[in-house]
Every structure is written in C-alpha cells, then in structure tokens.
Design a protein around this nucleic acid. Structure first.
Lengths: 338, 338
DNA sequence: TCTTTTTGCAAAATCGTTTTAGTATACTAC
DNA sequence: GTAGTATACTAAAACGATTTTGCAAAAAGA
C-alpha cells in the first residue's frame, strides 16, 4: 500500500525516470519524446494514480506552491473571513495556504517567518506587527515575495493592501455630523499600527474640518488585550463622564461590541440617548436592535488583491512590485444606531 | 545572502556533513563525537545562524512535523476558535498546522487529503463530511494517524473527539421543561452528520421521557447552505404556524442567529412570548438582550484532546488508538431567554 | 561512402538532509 | 608482535523528484 514514486512508473513503463518526468511535466516536445512513448507513460501514470511527492519536488525546484499567511489571530472574524477568501483565491492559481497567527507578538511573528522560510514557502502575506519592520526589510532584500495586509509600515517599501481607513472614518463622521450630532466621542486601542492611527487622525481631522473644536478629551484609548469586563467598565465610565456626548465612534469591531455592552448596562437607548458608528462590521451589529451603523471592511477584495499582488511577484519575470499600495474603500452600512 | 546549508557548516568547521548532522541532532554521544569537536560545530552553527532546511529533512525522514487540519469552513466562529486552540497546542509538541476547508464537499475534502498526503503531513485532524467514509478508511488502513473532530462515522473505527451532543440537548430540554415550558420546538438542518442527528434524537427522547407526546410536528428542518433571508422567513413561518409553541431549541448557532432575527421581525418578546435555547455559543447570544441560553462547545478541551490523540499516534511505538472516542460535556450557559 | 546533424531517450548530477557502513588510529590483551 | 576492540570520525547511499549532459542510432548532407 506504499506510495508509488516516479521511479515505479518508470519501471512499469519500461523507460527511465527522466523520461517520465519530462512527459508528466509537459516537456515531451522540448525533449522530443515520441508521441507513442509519451502516451504510454501517461497511461501508466494515470492507471497507477501517480502523484508527485511534493516534498521532493520542492527540494529540487526550490518552490513549494505554498503561500504563508501570517495574521494577528486566526480566531477573529475579520481574519477568519479573510483566510477563507485567500484560500479560495490562491487555490485558483494552484497555491495552498499555511496559516499562522502572531497574537501581535513580533517574536512569534519572527519565529513564524523563520519556520515558513525553511519550509520553502513561495511567498508571504502578513498583517504588520509593531516591531517587525526589520524582518520585513530582510524579506524584501532577499527578494522574497511579500504582501502586507490590513496595514503597512510607513518607511518600508513593501506592497500592501488594506481598507481606506481615513476615508471610512471620514465618511462615518460626515454621516454623524450631517445627522446633527456634534459631540462625537471616539474609542480606540493603543496598538501602534498605522490602520488604527489613521482612523484616529481621520476622526480628529473631521472634528477640525467641521469646527467641532479640539475636543480631544472625547477620545478613549483602551489597552490592547484589555480585559473584557474592564473594557466595558472603562467605556461606561467614559460615557458617564461625558454626558454631553451624543455619539460614539468605535475604531474596531471588538471595541464596538464592548461598547454595546456598556450601552446595555447603562440602559441607554440607541440612537436616542447615544448614536453609534463602528469601524469593521460584525454579525452582531446587523442583529442587535436597532442595528449599528458600520464601515465594513471589503474582505473579499482585500483577499483577492493580496493574492493577486503576491502571484504577480511569483512569475518567471519576478518583477518586484514594491510600489503597489492598494487602499480599498470600505462599505458604509447604515443601520438604526444613527 | 543565500541560505547556509549543513554542508556550509561542515566546510567552515572543517568536518564532514555527517558529523555536523550528528552533533546538531544530539547524536554526538551515540556516534562518539568528541566534546571539543562537537562544541566547535555548535559554535559555527549558531554563529552562522544555521537552521536545517525542513523540506530536505522531510524528504529524508518522511516526517514533516506538520499536521493537517481539515475543517468545514475556516471562517466559522467555532472552527476559527478551534483552529486557534489547535495551533497553540500543536506548537507545544513542535508541530505546525496546515488548514484546509471542505465547505462540506466530499470531493474537496478528498482533494485536500490527497494534497496533504503528498506533502508528507504526519497526521490528519478532520471534521467528518458525509461521503468521506471510504477516504477515512483508507487512511486508517495505511496507518496514517487520524483524529475526527466534532463528529464521527458510526461504522468507522477512527478515534474522535466531540461535544456530548445528546447530553447537551438533554440538559437544555430538562432546563426548559423544569421551567414549565411544554410545547418545545426544534429547528435543525438537513446535513447528514451524526452530531446533528444526535441532537435531534436527544430532543425527541426528551419529549418522550417527559411525556410531551409525539409532537414531531414541532420540528423544522432547514437546508444546509440555506439562504439567509429564506431561513429567517422559514423560521418566522414556523413560529407563526405554531402559536402554541412556548419555546424553541436551535440545533446550531447559525440557526439560532437566524432565529433571533425571526423573533425580532415578529416582534416577539423573549422569553415572555417564546423561550429560546441554542446549541453552540456565540458572542451575540451573550449580548443580545436578554441573552440566549446556550450549550457552549468546549472548544479548548476539544482542541487539546484532538491534538493529544493525534500526537499519541505519532510516537515511535505508533500505537493505533482506534478506540479512543471522547465526548466532552458542553457548558450550559443560562441567560435571559429561558 | 563518410561526415555531420538530428532524433529519442538514458545516465548522472543535484537539491539538503539523515543514516548506514566503513576506515584509520589508538589502545588492550595474550 | 599480532589480533582484537574501542574510538572518532568520514564516505557514501538514500529520500524522490528535476535537469543537464551524454550517447547511441537514424537521417541528412556532401
């Protein structure tokens, strides 16, 4: 019941291993193998159900047909959905995906890169983690195909694809303002990632633009990996401390969920007592009455673009497209909270 | 900047490749390499930052230190959480995970098995898909380590681990009944998987046991991959068609979510108009007022057990533990819906 | 007819390891 | 002094493919 190798096929067909390889790799013309023999080889191969040992192929060719996907956490809804899209998309090009999560720890991310590298993966897709700038530079220097997802490093010329954070927040803010809200709070998190900072800046910019003053006091910054209960409490306190606040913008979906819980505990009514907008959509926002207005990340497009950017770097020509910077507009979904 | 190989280390240390291999694999004693030389080799190796090429190792040893995880869909909350636990757990044993999803399609599952097999994965964890019985049998026959997760094939002696579906439903039903509900409906889905059937049977058994009659009419079976809107509609109709029904049990979390939506559209009040219990927990059930009582799958334990069962089959002794059938009790979480 | 070219395939090198089988030297024993 | 046995390594085969090179036989050219 052991696996059959190319050698076995060669033996059965009465030819040399090289001939089998040529035929099965479509190089029969180039190597001028006669049509008859080629057919015979193919017949034997299909009859025996031969499939090449990918490990051997990888060792010899240096290519694995595997792409590494390193995300913050496989468990999350955004990354889960993303992984699904990416897997499906990569499959179209004949690539498989190996997933890893970093939990936002650069050491773990580095380790993952190392592991993947020694497994001959052909390219990397990763969500930037604070502290991994050098590692990404290394990849670029050694001409390894990379695409950053959901963020980027400002000073590093790696291709990336992410939602247009600024545009999304701006749209959300404009929406709130046009609805008459003027004391708008913003709840964010203290990870040092561009995507978060961009959202914060867009919030501040919107306030300025509409002359809603420098109410920076209406910003709450939670710690990353904050305790769930503590987060809810902090948000509740934030709301109570600012009774004038008529709307809140949450920078991520998990903040928004905590926010919903706070609102619930405070028995506030949405949007009567407090309007709400959240960056990143989530099932719950569609369902929780009266629904939360969100800017949904275009997961499909992000995934498809990422794979495409990576595949482009994998061709024979191997053009390094360090300049590809794609920002895709999020989908504004209005619901009952505004 | 090219990668350094074992041969390079050998050259630099002035020894043969075999010596380097022995030292780095801790076989220096056995192969009686002198302490001095061993240290020298180690020094060179660390200085050069040598890491073995896993592909070559895999080809030579036939082992990859990779486990295949084939789930229904990476995107789902249950599988996402499971993947996270499994990745973390496998890491403890020095194994990495390659994820694939089947989308409940046996053809795709088969393809994945094939691909993984030719990548030398050391073992498989998979959620059973209707129609893959033979494929699993094949794996068993060829002594490949396998563990089924979240379900099993009744006639196939493969080790498995899943939540105790019957116990969970029974507990939920008892809870409802003890609270005075007697016209209890059940919404399920038409995939032919043991885990679903067990839940259905436990429901019926509970009705019988408590002499609530053969109200099989109170069962609604939706199609797998049902359209979201259509599902909600069907559930609404089901509720309207059975005004006597005072409680509903949902067999999976996505059914429960659709159910919440129906309830919302019908403007019913929970638990006043209708009580609700759902198998499988979800963020939303904790948050949606007044909260939905659920039986949560013990994701952590399932993941840990699965990895453990697989690792046991990977040792030198390679004991095939086909008899390991683990059912873990779910966590009953009571919330406002009952 | 003899050389040159083309055809059709096979041999052998290679990828980077692991592992089995050797080999040279030193030591022990009689 | 010779045989046997440790000692401390190295050489070479192997894993399963791909790819470069080689080499007969047939065809073409002179």
């Amino acid at each position: 019941m052991k696996k059959i190798s190319l050698k076995d096929i060669a033996l059965l067909a009465g030819v040399s291993p090289s001939t089998v390889s040529f035929v099965l790799n479509g190089k029969e013309k180039q190597m001028r193998i006669s049509e008859d023999l080629a057919n015979k080889v193919r017949a034997v191969a299909t009859k025996e159900g031969y499939k090449p040992n990918q490990v051997a192929v990888s060792l010899r060719t240096g290519q694995s047909k595997i792409l590494g996907l390193i995300v913050e956490s496989i468990g999350g809804t955004f990354f889960g959905a993303l992984a699904k899209v990416i897997e499906k998309e990569a499959d179209k090009y004949g690539y498989r995906i190996v997933y890893c999560s970093t939990e936002n720890d650069p050491a773990k991310g580095r380790e993952m890169l190392r592991v993947l590298s020694h497994s001959n993966v052909d390219g990397y897709m990763m969500t930037p983690v604070e502290g991994m700038e050098k590692d990404v530079m290394e990849l670029l220097k050694s001409k390894r195909p990379v695409v950053l997802i959901d963020g980027y490093f400002p000073d590093i010329p790696a291709p990336y694809v992410l939602v247009n954070n600024a545009a999304g927040v701006t749209q959300g803010m404009n929406h709130l303002i046009s609805r008459g809200y003027s004391k708008i709070g913003f709840v964010t998190v203290d990870i040092d990632l561009v995507q978060i900072r961009e959202r914060e800046q867009a919030y501040i910019a919107a306030l300025k633009k509409h002359k809603l003053g420098a109410n920076r006091k209406l910003m709450l910054t939670l710690e990353y990996n904050y305790d769930k209960q503590a987060g809810v409490k902090a948000i509740s306190k934030f709301i109570k401390d600012h009774p004038e606040m008529d709307a809140i913008f949450f920078a991520t979906y998990y903040l928004g969920i905590s926010g919903l819980q706070s609102v619930q505990e405070l028995k506030l009514r949405i949007p009567k007592d407090l309007a709400m907008v959240c960056f990143d959509d989530h099932d719950i926002f569609a369902l929780y009455p009266p629904g939360v207005t969100t800017i949904a990340q275009p997961v499909e497009q992000i995934g498809i673009t990422a794979v495409s950017l990576l595949i482009q770097q994998l061709g024979k020509d191997k053009k390094t497209i360090t300049q590809a910077r794609v920002e895709i507009d999020g989908d504004f979904i209005q619901r009952g909270s505004t």
